[in-house]
Amino acid sequence: MSESSKEFEFETAIRELERIVARLDREGIGLDEAIALFEQGIERLGEARRWLDTASGRVEELIASSTGGLEAMPLEGAEAPGGGSEDRTEDEP
């Protein structure tokens, strides 16, 4: 599987970002806290953007393994992850 325990939690990053923005919007926040929050937010934002730019999920097929269990193998004939210019139109034929 993918980078197992160190999976970047995009959704968590987004939630944190939203929380930071909400706190920044609060009345009565101190300048120092605001700057700290802002810096945190910028960092999360950068992480999330970098992750979006690079993340590429696998396409796998679950097939019966020799031991009788199931294993995920790369799906034959599927596009390589992240590959291919995906210029196809969005319209359904």
Binding site: A55, E60, E61, L62, I63, E79, G84
Partner: peptide
Amino acid sequence: SRKGAALQDIITVLRRRAPWVEIVVRH
């Protein structure tokens, strides 16, 4: 079905919209 056009359609759309998503197919 691994042989159907539906599978390719689904994979194409998923990869275009959400390239980060892992796709696990069971035929």
